[in-house]
Design a protein around this nucleic acid. Structure first.
Length: 434
RNA sequence: GCCGGGGUAGCUCAGCUAGGUAGAGCGCCGGGCUGUUAACCCGGUGGUCGGGGGUUCAAGUCCCCUCCCCGGCGCCA
């Protein structure tokens, strides 16, 4: 049989009973009742039951059906039939069947531990659950790109190999760059800032690497980082951009990936409010008051931990902003609020349902001397940031930007309880295989 | 880095407190079955008990060392 001119399982489900159909895919379930064999076929669009029986199929087809082990690749042809006993109500009664790749005993049978499934991740990604997540992820990637195109942003490609840290030195992966020390990037921000002086509004979607030895459900060592930076924009404009972006992507997933969300048993009612903006905004000091009211012992100036974030997210059914953090809690490049110089023009966007921070952004310090001073105050060396300081020497401009953790958004939208399933091959906890 | 849990059959686990010579379910193999839905029924197969050392007549079980894994915190997106 040639390997073209086939129907997807989705197409077959929509065909008239009695039509002929040709399908190809992998054996998802196999039930041999002796004189009747049921195969549930899986392709990228879904599943479809195939039936080979003594009565209705040639003997060699029944024999082949009997041999087709779980995960064997097959091509098959037959007549479409409606039958309430078939999963999804439609099945294909076979008169042709060819095993393309006979599978050995498949290492995943059901009931395996998380650890084991990570060892066989290259096979586990075939699961319907992970397939659904990857399709949702794809829809979000498309939505990000379309959103920024519509808003007049240029997509740029910053380097992954860099010389210095953005946030600090301890969390970088070191690389031997022909005898010099180099690092895998942990943020494209500084490079995006350089690009706004010509393109004005830029964005990128690229991996970031962080060697923080985090053992939580929200951390990856390698994650996809959506970052944007725009000239002539303050914190308020930036927050509007962020909420529009998040609302747009959630809306697109709700429009296009309902089947996948349903397979993942995601409660879409809880996602629906996030399609409407604006999102609530609370200042850091208000957040502290809310937490105190909820019985949490936290004082102005303390950083919020995972527990504090989770308690706050219970107050809202949409993502919400926390703004105006004490300056000393934030990075050197963030601009102090002129109204209140102890606070940074910085914001986090927290996703509801206990997910927590998915975006961090700020207005950047655009004054040369203030920036140098901020670098020094944090014990960093301005010498290491000369090219970055140049951006303030030659036509400095007010500007703002943000970074969004793609896997965290996928996790929230798809309703996952752990970030590992938001990416095909997660890198975390010293796991590098497969 | 810190706190907690765990490594026994291909997989998921029981057995350890009170040492006595290794178990279950699933899988796999063989057989049966004309509508299965993680099919079912019958039979069979399956282990250097993470590694090293010690105590003992005897160690999966007690002691010491060591390696690995998981849940969470901190840090962050």
């Amino acid at each position: 049989m040639p390997y073209s001119g086939f129907h997807t399982t989705r197409e077959v489900r929509g065909m008239e009973p009695g039509s002929r159909a040709r399908v190809r895919g992998w054996v998802y379930r196999h039930r041999d009742l002796g004189r009747r064999v049921f195969i549930v076929l899986r392709d990228s669009e879904g599943i479809l039951q195939l039936v080979a029986s003594d009565q209705a199929s040639p003997r060699e087809v029944v024999e082949e059906a009997r041999r087709a082990t779980i995960e064997s690749s097959i091509v098959a042809e037959g007549v479409v039939a409606r039958d309430p006993r078939a999963p999804g109500g439609v099945e294909l009664r076979l008169d042709k069947l060819e095993i393309v790749g006979l599978a050995g005993d498949f290492p995943i049978k059901g009931g395996e531990s998380v650890d084991y499934l990570l060892d066989v991740r290259h096979l586990w990604i075939r699961s319907r659950r992970l397939t659904a997540v990857m399709r949702i992820r794809d829809t979000m990637f498309r939505a990000y790109r379309e959103f920024f195109q519509e808003r007049g942003f240029w997509e740029v490609s910053p380097p992954m190999l860099t010389q210095a840290a953005v946030e600090g030195g301890a969390t970088l992966f070191e690389v031997n760059f022909f005898g010099k020390k180099a690092y895998l990037t942990q943020s494209a921000q500084l490079y995006l800032e350089a690009l706004i002086f010509s393109l004005e509004r830029v964005w990128t979607l690229a991996p970031s690497f962080r060697a923080e030895r985090s053992r939580t459900r929200r951390h990856l060592y390698e994650y996809w980082h959506l970052e944007a930076e725009e000239a002539w924009a303050g914190m308020e404009e930036e927050m509007r951009l962020v909420e529009d972006l998040v609302a747009y992507t959630v809306k697109r997933v709700l429009e296009e990936r309902l089947e996948e969300l349903s397979l993942l048993k995601r409660d879409t009612e809880k996602l629906e409010p996030a399609t409407r903006t604006p999102y609530p905004r609370i200042r850091y000091e208000e957040a502290i008051r809310i937490l105190n009211r909820r019985g949490v012992e936290i004082r102005y100036g303390d950083d919020m931990g995972a527990d504090e974030e989770r308690i706050l997210t219970e107050e809202y059914e949409t993502p919400f902003f926390v703004t105006h953090f004490p300056l000393e809690l934030k990075s050197f490049y963030m601009k102090p609020d002129p109204q209140n110089p102890g606070e940074a023009l910085a914001f986090d966007l927290l996703a509801p349902e206990g997910v927590g921070e998915i975006v961090g952004g700020s207005q950047r310090e655009d004054d040369l001397e203030a920036l140098e001073e901020a670098i020094r105050r944090r014990g960093l060396n301005p010498e290491d940031y000369q090219w970055y300081l140049d951006l303030r020497r030659y036509g400095t401009v007010p500007h703002s930007g943000f970074g969004l953790g793609v896997e965290r958004q996928v996790m929230w939208v798809a309703g996952l309880d752990h970030i590992r399933d938001s990416i095909p091959f997660p890198r975390f906890r010293d796991r590098i295989y497969p």
